[in-house]
């Protein structure tokens, strides 16, 4: 590839992919819970994306494409570290846990929503984040996580039910004693 091709490729990459760095980092940090690991993961994602940029079709959902690369890198790293993928038998367990689905509370603070999300199984968190925050289609989520579309749908449905259970169970929803619990938070 000539220098001019490199420059052109970089210019296109800069315009299409680089604007998504912050959102990718948020997702990576949420999933990895470690800032240094998340930064490393996002850097690797962008490096991989630049190398494969010829395979990206301009005008399609670049964020979905980047998320897919990020998830594949995570999956490879987990495998290399000898950890099992986030599949578990969450779907059955979640189905049992979510028989009763309380209504969504009328007032939701950012802290409430994130605290509740943190308490549901990671595999459900992933699908909910990719759907609600990253706005990926079911097909894009299925490709990113290497799972069937049907599993995406069931995890979303059950994850949402679990999320509502957790929201209903947060202390402030029952007694409204957030101030006492959080001390000086304003």
């Amino acid at each position: 590839m000539s220098e001019r091709d490199d420059e052109r490729r970089w210019a296109a990459f800069e315009a299409e992919a680089m604007p998504h760095v912050d959102r990718l980092f948020r997702l990576a940090l949420w999933l990895e819970r470690d800032r240094a690991v998340a930064e490393d993961l996002v850097q690797d994602t962008l490096r991989q994306a630049l190398e494969s940029f010829a395979r990206y079709t301009p005008g399609t959902n670049c964020r979905a494409w980047l998320v897919s690369i990020l998830q594949h890198l995570r999956s490879n790293r987990r495998r290399a570290a000898g950890r099992s993928p986030l599949v578990e038998d969450v779907d059955d367990a979640a189905a049992l846990a979510a028989r009763f689905v309380p209504p969504t509370p009328e007032v939701l603070t950012d802290e409430d929503v994130l605290a509740a999300l943190k308490r549901i199984p990671p595999a459900h968190q992933e699908v909910i984040l990719l759907c609600d925050v990253e706005e990926l289609s079911y097909k894009e989520i299925a490709e990113a996580l290497s799972i069937p579309v049907g599993t995406v749908m069931s995890r979303l449905h059950r994850g949402r039910a679990l999320l509502r259970n957790e929201l209903a169970a947060l202390p402030e929803k029952l007694g409204g004693h957030r101030d006492a619990a959080s001390g000086s938070a304003t």
């Binding site: 959102r23 948020r26 940090l29 939701l108 802290e111 929503v113 994130l114 609600d132 509502r164």
Partner: peptide, 21 residues
């Protein structure tokens, strides 16, 4: 209710400074 929950989640996730790069 689901619509509100989805919007709340997106807002919270993208606004929380703890997750910012």
């Amino acid at each position: 209710g689901i619509r509100v929950l989805r919007a709340s989640l997106q807002r919270a996730f993208l606004a929380t400074p703890e997750l910012a790069a």
